[in-house]
């Protein structure tokens, strides 16, 4: 009972955990920053995959659109980092406004494939078509253009980490609200039975469009946060082959849950960090991991934590009951 009342503190626990880890492993600060950004990216995908039942092989496209819009702003127009992130937010809205109506009418695998195509088109666009602006494969560098920000100079990695934590905290609470609100229920209902949803009188198309918008905006903002973090972008961010990474991260965390994305990002990037110390390319490992998670592990890390939690609670209750009984005797 008490545990349940503490549930709303979940996001705070996660942030606190990151903060403690940052001081326990001071040389891993970029890793923790990356986990936080990746969590936001995975959240975007989880809305599609976990709540709406759509698998997209094109998430890197939205990520790189966000990254490039922030980067282009920083490289050519202005130096305010917050404005850059806001630009990515607007680009996310715009993308969803343009693509949403056609994408949300598609079912199942068409959605997946069109997104994969978008991804290919995105790479082509940033690598070749817009080469005068994006410098193609050489990437776009703009760190020196970024202005100092008031209060906290987020150009410094150690400060940027705190900024990211604040963003993540906000994102987690927003996300928790989606899960609890009518929106989350409606999305889950529509993914299991869209027809019944129409006969309950809901406009499934518009509701999905709205959720798609949230998902795209999460991705573009994650992209912008990446580009501010690195100070440069190149087209490899949006590569098609990376589409599976975010799917895997979502699956590892546990799909359709509030805290799944965080544990997914943690598990996935942790594994990547570990594997890449002895393997340069790691498609092989990603593939194997995805299969294992899909077939043997489909509740994900967060699911395991929940199971462990309820097991502990059960044993706790039994233990308590027993002690009460012995006391009665």
């Amino acid at each position: 009972m008490k545990l349940k009342n503490l549930e709303f503190l979940g996001p705070v626990f996660i942030i606190a955990g990151l903060l403690v880890s940052r001081y326990l492993f001071p040389n891993k600060i970029t890793f923790f920053t990356e986990i936080s950004i990746y969590t936001i990216y995975v959240m975007g995908n989880n809305i599609l995959m976990g709540y709406m039942g759509y698998t997209s092989f094109g998430q890197p496209f939205y990520l790189s659109c966000g990254a490039y819009s922030a980067a282009i702003y920083l490289a050519y127009i202005g130096g305010n980092v917050f404005v850059a992130i806001f630009v990515a937010f607007l680009v996310g809205l715009l993308l969803s406004f343009i693509l949403g109506p056609s994408l949300m009418r598609l079912k199942g695998s068409y959605f997946t494939l069109i997104n994969a195509s978008l991804c290919a088109i995105g790479v082509f666009m940033f690598e070749r078509l817009l080469i005068d602006i994006t410098n193609g494969n050489d990437g776009l560098w703009y760190r020196s253009n970024m202005h100092k920000t008031p209060l906290l100079d987020i150009r410094m990695p150690q400060n940027y980490f705190f900024f990211i934590l604040i963003v993540l905290l906000a994102a987690l609470y927003l996300y928790r609200k989606i899960d609890r609100s009518a929106l989350g229920t409606v999305l889950k209902a529509a993914s299991t039975n869209p027809r019944k949803m129409r006969f309950l009188g809901y406009n499934v198309f518009r509701i999905r469009w709205m959720a798609f918008t949230i998902s795209v905006v999460f991705s573009t903002i994650a992209g912008a946060l990446y580009s501010v973090n690195f100070g440069f972008v190149n087209p490899s961010l949006g590569e098609n082959s990376r589409a599976i990474e975010v799917l895997l991260a979502t699956l590892i965390g546990g799909i359709g849950t509030v805290y799944g994305p965080f544990f997914g990002a943690l598990g996935f990037l942790g594994m990547k960090d570990f594997v890449s110390s002895f393997l340069s390319r790691w498609e092989f490992v990603v593939g194997i991991m995805t299969l294992i998670v899909l077939f043997k592990f489909n509740r994900g890390l967060w699911g395991m934590i929940q199971d462990a939690g309820s097991f502990l609670a059960d044993t706790g209750r039994k233990f308590k009951n027993n002690s009460v009984k012995t006391a009665e005797k």
């Binding site: 609890r180 609100s181 009518a182 409606v186 009188g201 809901y202 518009r206 509701i207």
Partner: peptide, 12 residues
């Protein structure tokens, strides 16, 4: 058919 307070309403 498209309630705008979807996000702010919590059924429970």
């Amino acid at each position: 058919a498209f309630p705008l307070n979807l996000y702010t309403t919590v059924f429970r």
